[in-house]
């Protein structure tokens, strides 16, 4: 066991998959010599050589498009978008190519590429460096979308993503890259994509979140607990596929639900989660299912961020209102 940040855990996962599968290649902007602008791939080029871990020219569409071709030859590309806000330069490759090669070739070819990208706010960065648009990828048929919230999950889910046979958009909450450490196993292990994690069991209300917002959700859950509210906290971890049965089971037990996430509200992941609640637990509901999300605005520049990212206090406030409903 070793105490690791999420950056270290992901680095460790990358090292494991590069070691176990010689077809794995890792590339993107500043990924090689520099080890990534967040140092996620630090030391991997030294260890595995430039043929397997390398810098690409500055072109996201080129990065995603070449990965499709590499995959056709049997390679297993892990590519990095420096920030999720710049992944849109690659959008047509992702939505029209990466996600469709299997279907288009009727299973003859596949593009099981892992597309890593830091996402989310909270680091006081310029425009486009703070947004949470996972919903765009989750809405694309043929893509899996994973967002871990702990070093342990980040490692296990990334290993599963790389071992899997489908394309995965792996979004990393940059706000949590270094803010939490966790004792994790140094040896390989994997966590299957598509399984939510029940972080804490409770009976009064189900609080559902994932990724960056889990930080506030955890705090809120602790505070609520002290106020006598028994919170069941679920980290869905996988935005698509969504673990609908775990959500249903929990809400059937608690009868109340609040989902919290960072991106815009309209047509957001919250809507999908709450629809699941309606499908799975409608007759058990004791309060209207509720979402707390970002506004339908751009992720504001640093000075506006405080209005945009929900505080634990706000989450507790909403939990209380629902419990008292």
């Amino acid at each position: 066991m070793k105490n690791m940040t999420m950056v270290q855990a992901i680095n460790n996962a990358l090292e494991i998959v590069l070691t176990e599968n010689e077809k794995v290649v890792l590339y993107g902007e500043d990924v090689g010599v520099e080890g990534g602008v967040f140092r996620v791939s630090a030391g991997l080029q030294e260890k595995f050589g430039e043929k397997r871990v390398f810098d690409s020219p500055l072109a996201e569409s080129g990065i995603a498009g070449t990965a499709v071709g590499m995959a056709a030859t049997g390679l297993k590309p892990i590519i990095e978008m420096q920030f999720s806000g710049f992944s849109y330069h690659a959008f047509h490759q992702i939505i029209n190519q990466v996600s469709r090669i299997r279907n288009r070739s009727r299973g003859r070819h596949t593009a099981p590429i892992v597309i890593r990208m830091p996402y989310g706010g909270g680091i006081k960065a310029p425009e486009h460096h703070s947004e949470s648009m996972e919903v765009l990828y989750a809405a694309i048929p043929g893509l899996k979308v994973v967002i871990p919230s702990t070093p342990h999950d980040a490692k296990g889910l990334l290993i599963d993503a790389v071992r899997g046979e489908d394309p995965v958009v792996f979004m990393e909450p940059k706000r949590l890259y270094r803010s939490v450490k966790q004792e994790i196993q140094e040896e390989e292990y994997s966590i299957p994509i598509g399984k939510a994690s029940v972080v804490q069991e409770g009976s009064d209300i189900t609080l559902i979140s994932y990724g960056a917002s889990m930080k506030e959700a955890r705090k809120a859950s602790d505070t609520a607990q002290k106020k006598g509210i028994s919170v069941e906290l679920i980290d869905i971890r996988s935005i698509y596929p969504l673990d609908r049965s775990t959500i249903g089971e929990s809400v059937r037990k608690t009868g109340r639900v609040l989902v919290v996430h960072e991106g815009p509200e309209s047509y957001g992941p919250g809507a999908e989660v709450l629809t699941t609640v309606i499908d799975e637990a409608f007759l058990y509901l004791e309060a209207p299912p509720r979402r707390l999300s970002g506004f339908d605005t751009i992720a504001p520049y640093p000075q506006g961020e405080e209005w945009y990212i929900h505080t634990p206090e706000r989450i507790v406030y909403e939990l209380q209102r629902l419990v008292e409903y």
């Binding site: 309209s266 605005t297 506006g304």
Partner: peptide, 22 residues
């Protein structure tokens, strides 16, 4: 400093009901 209003004011020429409500 940046206010709550500033977050919304420039998204559209006129605030749609969703944003107004949020």
């Amino acid at each position: 400093p940046h206010s709550l209003d500033d977050v919304f004011a420039y998204m559209f020429s006129e605030l749609p009901p969703e944003l107004e409500a949020q």
